[in-house]
Each structure stands twice: as C-alpha cells, then as structure tokens.
C-alpha cells in the first residue's frame, strides 16, 4: 500500500528531542501513562512517541504492546498502516511537497523535480548527511495558493524551489549557516 515514493509524516511537527539521549522505552512508558484512561489511545500514543523521539523506533513496539495489553502485531500493524509514523530518524528539516490535484494544476510535479535536484535528495528519502527528509503529502488544504508545501510543521503557499531551498541546510560539504527567509513568508 504505502509504497513507492510516498513516505512518512511530513506533517508531523519537528521532534522536540531528536533521538539520542532519551531511552525510547522510558519515553514510550511515560507517553502511555499520560494517555491512561483515554479510549482507543494508540494513535495519540504513537503521535506522542514520535513527537518526543522524532520517529517510532522498533524497540518501543513491544513496550507499547505490553502496556496496552495488545499484541506486538497489533501495534506494528498500526505503525505501518499510517503514513505519518516514521520508523527511522528523519532529517534535521522535514519537507513535504503537496502532490495532489489542485497543486498539480499549478505545477507541483515540475516543482518536485526541481526540489529533488536542488536539495540533492529523492522524494521519500532522507539525504545521506541527515540534513533533510523530503516527503510527498496529499493535500494541505492550501489549494487556492498552490503549489503548497509543509516544512517542519509550517504550511507554505505559492512555493518555489527557492522557498524550500532557503529553509533547508545545504548539502553536507557546504557550510551550514542559518538559512535566509524567503521573501513574503518570514516573520
């Protein structure tokens, strides 16, 4: 089903604590504890884990399963069903390009090709230097101001390749600096 170029969760907010220090199992247990008593809480729990860790590591699946008295297959099935849930760590910046019809009508396909070339990463992948993850999304509800994109949880309209490139670190060998804000979008 969710194969091919489509990948995980461009719309998820950027992680608060990307990976390294927290013990994933402990994080998962504390997230589960916060949702104790909620009905059918698996999705909110997985969102919570991904928010804390940036993705849903394989090792938390049995932890969540045990806490919720579900089978590991149940939890794995849900993690793998939904596009949002990543199973590997995302890049420092997560870019989602809208590929749905309304954005196609204003050149989203050509934009995607330009962005792939400029950022040096294919749609659905994370660049080797970890600088950026490029995803496809199907509709951000910004269909009158397309092409639309979402960068680290922030929706952008009338997007050009320059808009996106300005928000993403240059590929590894280029010096990493604070990217310039594109005109008309910045605060």
């Amino acid at each position: 089903m969710h194969a091919g170029c489509v990948s995980n969760g461009a719309s998820s907010p950027p992680p608060t604590a990307p990976g390294a220090t927290a013990d994933p199992a402990e994080v998962a247990r504390s997230v589960v504890a916060a949702h104790r008593g909620d009905r059918g809480a698996l999705l909110p729990i997985l969102h919570g884990v991904q928010h804390a860790l940036g993705y849903v590591p394989t090792e938390v699946v049995p932890v969540i399963a045990a806490e919720l008295n579900l089978s590991r297959a149940d939890v794995h099935g849900v993690v793998s069903f939904y596009r949002d849930f990543r199973r590997t760590s995302p890049g420092r910046t997560v870019v989602g390009l809208c590929r749905a019809e309304a954005c196609q009508a204003v050149g989203a396909d050509a934009l995607a090709a330009q962005v792939e070339a400029r950022l040096g990463v294919e749609c659905g992948a994370t660049r080797a230097d970890g600088g950026v993850t490029l995803d496809e999304v199907f509709c951000l509800g910004n269909c009158a101001l397309g092409p639309a994109a979402i960068v680290d949880g922030r929706v952008l309209g009338r997007v050009t390749v320059d808009t996106v490139a300005a928000l993403v670190d240059s590929p590894a060998d280029a010096p990493a600096g604070s990217p310039a804000q594109p005109e008309g979008v910045g605060a």
Binding site: G141, N142, A144, L145, A148, R154, V155, L156, G157, R158, G184, V185, G186, A187
Partner: peptide, 14 residues
Amino acid sequence: DSAARSVGADGVAA
C-alpha cells in the same frame, strides 16, 4: 488562517 500564514500573514502581523 494557515493559508494566510502560508503567504506571510505572521510577518505582517509582527
């Protein structure tokens, strides 16, 4: 609105 924000409303408001 996020459509307005997508084309710079936050910068205008600031």
